[in-house]
Design a binder for these strands. Structure first.
Lengths: 202, 202
DNA sequence: ACATCCATGTGATCGCTGATTACATATGGG
DNA sequence: CCCATATGTAATCAGCGATCACATGGATGT
């Protein structure tokens, strides 16, 4: 006799989604290493081997988690840039950093998963959307004459590196998260103006 | 009777160092997760429990590895900035990115360890040296009039975020490593000049 | 020179994990 | 109605981190 209650039939019905949800829970609590198949199964109320019916191995489960997180993250990024009536560059950067600070473990998982050789179409697509969003902001800015005419790809890469690095430094505890907004503003200002004195080289 | 040969006495003599060396080997081969205590012991030719005589747990061994790596990394950074007769900013950035590309797993370990609450004095010191190095470069540049008079701390943070983010993007496979040098040059140029058109905001 | 202390290494063992296998159950198509 | 199949379970395996009692031998004091 099993311990299953009347509420849950023998066949769960939506076990994969439930497993991913509990895995995200574990991820948020204690990082990627804490996403332990057996614990996920325990929280879902199924046997330790049940998850392997739906995911070939632990890595596949983590990949599904990464996909779910990437979708969530991408949606927030898009919402942020759409909600920004002005200064979309700043809005994008802040949304990025704020997400990383709110969900540091998700940030780590995405960092380690998104660029994996075995990345799935969904991850690829999410990433493409994000890159296009920031590229669009840059090109629009250049067309309005707010940006110098530098190579948009180069500007995008620099901007991504800046916000990416900043996020990581906040998450790592190297920078004080309570100063996030002002610091982002200042760094973006600096990036806009440059640090070079006329006639010099770095 | 044990299988130990004449070469190695019962008491190893320098087991901690040997263990760390093999751990670095494993780290370089397959990342932090591959630093498995038992495998380290195997490679050192000792019993599975021997490492625990010198490190209270696996995390402590990894911390020792991180210290060793941090020393190595810091030395290379200092050498790079000293060897650079001109454009020290560029030299520092390239040295950073090149180290990350040459040893991606060490880069990951440092990222996850250096800012840990339980970081050791050695790590702290290594990090302080690095921060001071880049701050020195910035202040010297400002004194020679090559840099605008912006807050040196802000410039340093932005520069660190830029080179840090760029390194991560290379390591993650998002940017083509073979273009590293030109891309670093271009991004640093861009950072120096800024992207803002006169009279605009980002 | 000798006895002894104790740092260092060993072997056995524990609980936990990822993964595989044979078996149980229920659902939906013929 | 019946059974093929998808989905869940139980039992089991090897590998892992960690602990403990025990073995060994180098260093120390007299």
């Amino acid at each position: 006799m099993t311990t299953r209650t009347a509420g849950r039939p023998y066949h769960h019905g939506s076990l994969p989604e439930t497993l991913v949800a509990h895995a995200v829970e574990l991820l948020d609590e204690a990082g990627p290493d804490a996403v332990v198949v057996r614990e996920v199964a325990r929280r879902a109320g199924v046997s330790p081997s049940a998850p392997f019916r739906h995911f070939p191995d632990r890595a596949a489960l983590l990949a599904a988690v990464a996909e779910a997180v990437a979708v969530d993250f991408g949606a927030l990024q898009l919402a942020a840039v759409e909600a920004a009536d002005a200064l979309p560059f700043r809005a994008l950067g802040k949304a990025f950093v704020h997400y990383a600070l709110a969900h540091p473990h998700r940030f780590a998982l995405l960092r380690d998963t998104v660029f994996t050789p075995a990345r799935t179409p969904a991850l690829e697509e999410g990433h493409r959307l994000f890159t296009e969003a920031i590229t669009g902001v840059i090109i629009a800015g250049q067309q309005r004459g707010e940006l110098r005419g530098a190579d948009p790809d180069l500007v995008r890469i620099a901007a991504q590196a800046l916000v990416y690095g900043l996020s990581q430094m906040f998450v790592d505890g190297y920078l004080d998260p309570t100063r996030a907004d002002t610091l982002i503003n200042d760094v973006i200002d600096l990036f806009g103006l440059g640090v070079l004195a006329p006639g010099s080289r770095l």
